[in-house]
Structures are given as C-alpha cells and as structure tokens.
Design a protein around this nucleic acid. Structure first.
Lengths: 341, 341
DNA sequence: TTGTACGCGTTATCAC
DNA sequence: GTGATAACGCGTACAA
C-alpha cells in the first residue's frame, strides 16, 4: 500500500490540533502546551512524518542548500576544497551540491542555470575561464556568489583565493637561489588567473635574483598528459632548462613522468617544483618541492563567507571581500642545486 | 531595488497571456501559437525569469536531485566514485548532493533525515556500518535507495559493490604463489563488509595454495595512521611476516610508511599488496600491487540503477538487484618472491 | 489554441 | 496557547 507521505495535516488530524500547532512543535517556535507538544511528537513518530522542506522553502524562499561548481573533483586539491566546504556547510545545516565543469564554460553555464532554478541559497564558483556570463546570471538573480580559487575578470564578487602570485614568487626565488639559469614553466590554459598569476609570480621571483636568467613559458592544460608533453617540448630547447615549474599538481606529476621518459634524474640533473601539494594521505614518498595552498581552509572559508552573505542578503551591498589565503613553501627533495654548466 | 525574482505571473502579465501559457512555453507542452511563444520567450529574457523548481517539485513531488552519502570524499576511491556518479546524474538532468559520514552512524543518520526532508528523489548510501537504521528510514519514506560499496546487513535494497571477495582471493593466491608463508592482513573496522570480505577472500586464496601458511589479522581503521601502526605491530610477530595485505588504499600507504620506518625494503624484504588502486593522475611511480575496483563505473552504475528505480517507483517492488563489479588484479613492483627462510 | 480553478505542504499574519 | 486564512509559484484537469 504505497500510501503517499504523511503531511503536517495528517499529524494535526491525528491529535486533533491545527497544522500550525504541529508546525510550532517542529520548529520550536511560538508557545505550545507541554502536553500538546508531547502528543504531537508522538504522532510524528507514529506516522513516520518527515517535514517537507520544499513547501517550507516555497514560503520562506530559503532552501538551506548551496552549490560548489568546480572544474573537477578528481583533482586532489579540489577534493580537499570540497571536504572543507561540505564540513562547513553541514555544520550550519546546509546541504552541498557539487558540479564538475571540466573547464567548459557551457557546462558551467548549464549548471548555474539549473542551480538557480533549484533556488540554491548561494553558489561557490570556480570559474571555468572568465565566467563573466555565469556570474552575471547568478548576480542578476540576487543569489549570493563567492568566486573561488581564481580571480574573476569583470565581476564584482567576493573572492577566496590562494596567494598564487606570492607562492610562485617564492618558488622562483628558491630556484634562482639554487643557481639555475634556465627554467621552463609548464603553464595551464591562458586566461585562467591561477595560471597567469603563477607564471608572473615565478618570473618575478626568479628574475629578481637572476635578471639574466631565462624563463620559458609553455602553455597547455591543467592535466598530467599536458605536463608530460610540455616537458618533452621544454627539454628539447637549447640550452636545456635545468629546472621545471609545474603550475598545478597534475602538471607537475606529468613533468616528473616526462623527466623519467627522458632518463633525467630529479633533482640531480633537473630540479622540479610545483604548485599545490598532494594530501599526505595519498602520497607514499613526500618528494616534491611545492607551494601548498590551504585547500581545506579555502573550502571552509568560502562557505563561511557565502553563508554570511546569505544571512545578510537584505542589508548587503557591502563592497566585495577578497580573501587571499597564504601559501606554504614546502621544500623537499625534488629541488636541488643547478648542475655545473 | 532588490525586487524579488520574477514569477511566471510576471511573465504572463507582461505579454498579456495566462500563466499556464507561459508554463507551456517553458515545458514545450501543449499547443502555443508561434507568435505567442516568441513573445513569451522574449519576455522571459527581458525579465530574467528563472522558473522556480521548488513550486514545480511541490506539485510533482520530484526534485531532480539525488544524494550520495559516503564516508569521506577525500579517499581517492570515493572521489572517483563521486565523479562517476556526478557525471551520470548530470547526464540525466539530476543534481548531486554529497555528504561525508566519517564512518559515524549518527552523522549518517542526521544526513539521511535532512535529505528526506529535502525530498531528494533517491539516495546512494555507503553505509557507515550496518546502517540498518538509515536504510529503514529511507525505505519507510519510499525513497529509492542504492547501497554502495558495502553489503547491507538486514536490508533488502539494491546493491552495487566491487568483488571484494574475489579480488582479495586473487591477491591471496598471488602472495601464496610467491612463496610467502607468513602474512599479515591489515584490516579495517569490524562489521564493515568490505573489510570482512577482503579478509576472508585473502585467506581463502592464500590457504588454497598454502594450507599451512599463517595469516594473521590486525584490525584497525581505514586510514593511513592505522595502517602504519598495525604494520609496526605485525612486524613484531615471530616469525616476522614476509608479506602484508592492506585492506584499503590508505592502509596500504600506511603500511609502506611503516615498512620504511622499520627499514625494510619492498619487495626485497617484504611484499606489500593492497585493495583499491590510486588514480593514475596522482601517482608518480606506479608501484603497488593491488586489486583495483572500477570506482568510476561504480559511481555511474549506481546512479543509473537508482534513476531506473526512480523512474519505475510506482510499479516497483521488483526484487533487489545486486551488482557485483569485477576487480582487476594489477601486479606491480611491490610484490616479490619470499626471501629465503 | 488559450484560460480558469484548484491543490501541492508549509508558514506569516492576524484573530480568538 | 491555539486556530483560521491566505499565500508562496507552479502544473493538472477541465472548459471555452
């Protein structure tokens, strides 16, 4: 007998009160006599009543749901971001929807549309590229928005990013101080701010200490294959670079493989540094020298900022907040002195 | 002017038609004159109208949202499951909510409650332990349920699992065939079926070929620290085991670290095998011999099964489907012949 | 081809 | 303390 789910009315009827009274019991709002309250609670248990949030949301226009739109959960950096975000959301009674865009603007756009139709209370967005269009859509619906990980071009919105520029600068300085004169940067897609900032930061740091050093940039995608093939390209240059910088974790791993393909030892023959650390839990030999972003904190803080905005969405039009989270330089075995010329 | 979001009525008024006509345009249902349709579409654009799914769901009692409740996204195995699930969900126009339980039944329970209140159309559940309570709750609400990764005790529900028994048996046979006589199994929590099945399977495979072999079981948690400390314990036994089996990826990595702590080389002095492979993208040296579950496929298939059930939820009471996905034995460098006694 | 009336389950508002 | 009424935004059933 698949009778449909009991409603607040069913509960009310069962103990001879009005629906609103049941509502008060559920939400602990208003006054309800202790005796009545208990009767209602018993009825709720008996019927297996589960309040329908949809109806509630329809009136209150709050769904207690937020969304995180990112490029790929499978990237350990984002995995950790998701975990931080989910923890924070859950602590505040919010559910978290996730969506993968794979850097495709149209996928992003479709998701955003769906999310807005679902009336999520807020959106965390890792923009696929400029993402001006998605951001516009979201803000036009007056839905709170936090841009994550990447700077938004032409969009006034709260932002939470790691300090790509500063982190890369430290790496650049490190590499320069180790005596390297020829470096190759394995960069991600153009127009993605993290990639751009890391290139710039690295160059700054490197050329700071080594004004005549050569710093070649190879553009590709933020994945392992790209890191590997760009490495091959980079190694073909004359003179051969003695240090490589991978602009994200996947590219750096790809570089490591590319170096192995070429039978080059790290760090004896080539120094390798990268951006984004791998979680300790999945790594067998901590080996790579990296600038590590606080991924978990980024997820957490972003959600907290978003929920703040949601709470104050009436009084809002405050100026956008831009959180720049510090990046940790972790020196490990993959970086070493330049081999003798 | 934070005027609130335009409704279907606003659109209707703006072009002098009835709301239902707008509805027809949006859903491509019923007949609408081309001229009117275009007028309506224009108005939708002008107003920036976004249909409210909440209201729609309230009538249809379908939210086009499903949830995946698992123990920890941060585990690369589950990360990949999530990706598979999200891809499949998205292809069918569903949004995916994720929730981490950290193996806590009470967290799981709270989440399930919330999800039911949100009227998700179905739930994918990796049960924290027996999970009988959560499953009962879900099924009592007639919400489609697919149990993932672990067998459900005392619950009639669709299930999608990797072949833990078979995979572990293969590992057991492999280790036995390499000449090992003393093995330690680093197991997860008791009452978690994956752990139990892997212990049993390994023992079967091992003792098949080596009836007098010794196979000690050490119970702990599915994390790296536990793998590491259990390894220390295991290595203290006399005679010392010459092979270790980690019941999940984290434990195996922990074991690797534990072996390094003890200055033991893999595979020369100790053979190490494990369950669950690490994604190629995050691994620098593929090294561990493992039984690999098709994580992505598990996510995909589970969602597809769930959506099937959702579609047919009226005519349903079909017998539960139990999908057992094959596991791949991947032999790499971490397994080797037993050292001479 | 288009429109009217009503209900989905809940809560805000105002009365008793 | 408790209840009646309306409204949230949309779609089904039925008319016109």
């Amino acid at each position: 007998m698949p009778r449909s789910k009991p409603t607040i009315q069913d509960v009310a009827r069962r103990c001879g009160v009005a629906p609103i009274t049941v509502s008060r019991v559920i939400n602990n709002s208003g006054y309800v006599a202790t005796e009545v309250r208990e009767r209602v609670q018993q009825a709720i248990r008996d019927l297996g009543y589960v309040p329908n949030t949809l109806a509630r949301s329809l009136r209150s226009s709050r769904t207690n749901t937020i969304a995180l739109v990112l490029t790929d959960v499978t990237n350990p950096f984002f995995t950790t971001v998701v975990r931080g975000a989910e923890d924070a959301a859950s602590e505040h009674g919010y559910m978290l929807i996730i969506a993968n865009t794979d850097e495709h603007e149209d996928k992003e756009h479709r998701y955003v549309q769906m999310l807005l139709q679902h009336r999520v209370d807020g959106i965390l967005l890792v923009p696929a590229r400029g993402a001006a269009e998605s951001a516009r859509l979201i803000q036009q619906q007056q839905t709170p928005l936090v841009i994550m990980d990447r700077r938004a071009v032409g969009t006034r919105a709260d932002t939470v990013c790691g300090d790509s520029l500063g982190g890369a600068r430290q790496l650049g300085e490190l590499v320069a101080s180790l005596g390297h004169n020829h470096v190759a940067i394995l960069a991600g897609p153009e127009a993605v701010s993290t990639s751009d900032d890391r290139i710039l930061g690295f160059q700054q740091g490197f050329q700071n200490l080594r004004p005549n050093g050569v710093c070649a940039v190879y553009h590709g995608l933020f994945n392992q294959d790209s890191g590997r093939s760009l490495t091959r390209q980079a190694l073909a240059a004359h003179p051969r670079p003695t240090a490589l910088f991978g602009c994200n974790n996947f590219m750096t791993i790809g570089a490591l493989r590319g170096l192995r393909d070429a039978n080059l030892n790290v760090p004896e023959q080539v120094t390798l540094v990268g951006f984004d650390d791998l979680p300790d839990s999945i790594v067998t030999f901590p080996f790579l020298t990296v600038a590590a972003q606080p991924a978990y904190e980024m997820g957490r803080r972003s959600v907290e900022l978003l929920l703040d905005r949601i709470k104050n969405s009436v009084t809002d039009p405050d100026p956008p907040i831009e959180l720049l989270l510090p990046v940790d330089l972790i020196v490990r075995a993959s970086s070493g002195p330049a081999p003798h010329g």
